[in-house]
């Protein structure tokens, strides 16, 4: 690990994405939260973005000068919490 303290700040715990990862992408010119999401998989882990997406929106706002309310958070998708596939498959065998 380098000396950059931003590498020790975890923004997305599901996919191990650090503050440096996010800032590097923004510095490379990609500032769209939908694109940052696809490149780093923030918001795509088991928490579905409940922890990381507001943080990432804050970082984008700070670095680009946008207002945080201008940054539309990516869609929240079902299921809201992880659910075992067997539960969803249910008793369809018996139906």
């Amino acid at each position: 690990m380098s000396d950059d303290p931003r590498e020790r700040i975890i923004i997305c715990r599901c996919n191990d994405v650090t503050l440096k990862d996010i800032e590097d992408i923004i510095d490379s010119g990609i500032t769209d939260i939908e694109e940052i999401k696809r490149l780093t998989r923030i918001g795509m882990g088991p928490c579905q973005g409940r922890t990381c997406l507001p943080l990432v929106a804050g970082i984008i706002a700070r670095k680009t000068g946008k207002k945080i309310e201008e940054i539309e958070l990516p869609a929240t998708r079902v299921p809201i919490r992880p659910v075992p596939m067997g539960v969803l498959a249910g008793d369809m065998d018996e139906e």
Binding site: G45, P46, P79, P82, V83, P84, M85, A89
Partner: peptide, 17 residues
């Protein structure tokens, strides 16, 4: 999915799109 690979029953679904 769980018909084809029964073990997937124990795996959590994170999302659909």
């Amino acid at each position: 999915f769980s018909q084809i690979i029964p073990a997937l029953k124990y795996l959590n679904v994170i999302r659909i799109w």
